[in-house]
């Protein structure tokens, strides 16, 4: 163009602003399109997945609440009941790991154990 199309500052302002918005909105649609056609993205995170997971977790928690909480042996001075939120947290962690099935019981592990036993337990745990 040899000469400016207009010299009215407000018209220039409005036209430019409109063009900038249109270009950037179009670019955002392009980004979404790229995301949609991306063949390498992980299998679509289903919209309903969190709900299913939530339902499964609630069911598991209910089962555990209904079942008996058992302990290896009575620990002197300790209340053997495990708080519900602790059970919920354990069940949620299990469900999150993708382990299916039911948690039927939660058992307290004795705390006044020797260092040898704790070591062995953690070794077994880490080897799994």
């Amino acid at each position: 163009m040899g000469h400016p199309v207009t010299t009215n500052p407000f018209i220039i302002m409005m036209i430019n602003m409109t063009v900038v918005f249109i270009v950037l909105v179009a670019l955002s649609f392009l980004i979404q399109l790229i995301h949609k056609i991306d063949p390498t993205k992980e299998p679509e995170e289903k919209e309903s997945a969190p709900q299913v997971e939530e339902d499964e977790m609630q069911r598991l928690i209910k089962n555990v609440k209904d079942s008996k909480v058992v302990t290896d042996r009575d620990i002197p001075g300790e209340d053997e009941s495990i708080p519900e939120e602790v059970i919920a947290a354990i069940v949620a962690a299990i469900a999150r790991c993708g382990i299916t099935g039911e948690v039927r019981a939660v058992r307290m592990v004795e705390r006044d154990t020797t260092a040898w036993k704790s070591n062995a337990r953690s070794n077994i745990g880490s080897s799994k």
Binding site: I12, M13, F21, V25, L27, I31
Partner: peptide
């Protein structure tokens, strides 16, 4: 991608100064 709109809105200053 919608953050592009924020990038566009921040150009308002350019056109205010132009006017």
């Amino acid at each position: 991608p919608w953050t592009l709109l924020l990038g566009a809105a921040a150009q308002i200053g350019v056109f205010v100064a132009l006017a």
